[in-house]
Computed example of a mutant assay.
Amino acid sequence: MIREIMKDEMFLAQKAERATVEDLRVAADLLETLCAHKDGCVGMAANMIGVNKRIIAFDNEGSYVVMFNPEIVKKSEPYAAEEGCLSLAGTRKTKRWKSIKVQYQTAEFQTRYKTFTGWTAEIIQHEIDHCEGILI
């Protein structure tokens, strides 16, 4: 189900709760909402659709990926970036990392580790910030 985009900054500033197997429907809605906004959006976190859970979805070079309970466990090469967000007006400057290693869970709740670089790494960092209640 395509959900409305959350714009309430007080809600968005809350740290998200860990996702569980009961949140699989939320992940499906998140992915469907992201696909509906693909012309202007490359990633979303569950709080952007009004659900305060650690779930993100993003475009990984043409295919969509959903992560449950993602955390950055390693990062290198900081740089300055400027980003926009569907939940917020305008763009803002922020610090990002060129390479990140992420620990996350799959839809089967199996723990995985993967390293991302470049644009995909920037997208993931933005969405994990949402899970932490950090607004760019």
Rank of each mutant, 00 (worst) to 15 (best):
M67P: 02
E9K: 11
F11H: 04
D29V: 06
I128M: 12
I49N: 02
D39I: 07
F116P: 00
N52P: 03
L31I: 07
V51F: 13
I72S: 02
M67S: 07
V42R: 00
K7H: 14
K15Y: 09
F68A: 06
C85T: 01
K7L: 10
Y79M: 08
N47K: 09
E83G: 12
D23M: 09
K38S: 06
A19W: 05
R54A: 04
F116T: 00
V102G: 04
G90I: 08
L30T: 00
E127S: 07
W119F: 09
A107M: 11
S63Q: 07
I136F: 12
I123P: 00
L34G: 00
K95Y: 14
A89F: 09
R92G: 15
M48V: 10
A19R: 01
H37G: 03
R96K: 14
A121L: 01
T20Q: 08
M1I: 05
E4Y: 10
V51T: 06
N47P: 07
A107K: 14
M44S: 01
I100C: 12
K75T: 00
R3A: 14
K53D: 02
E83M: 13
R112F: 10
Y113R: 09
N69G: 13
A121G: 04
A28S: 04
R92Y: 15
E108T: 14
R92K: 15
V66P: 01
V51D: 05
G118P: 01
V42M: 07
G43V: 13
E122A: 11
R3Q: 08
I123Y: 06
E71Y: 08
V21K: 09
S63N: 07
F109G: 08
D8K: 10
E71Q: 13
K98T: 02
I100S: 05
L12M: 10
I124W: 08
G50S: 10
D129C: 12
L31P: 01
V42Y: 14
Y64C: 05
T106P: 02
K75F: 13
E108P: 01
R18I: 02
A45W: 03
K15P: 02
C41A: 14
E132K: 15
C41P: 00
A13F: 10
G118Q: 03
R54P: 03
F58W: 12
M1G: 13
T20N: 11
Y104P: 03
T111E: 12
V73A: 08
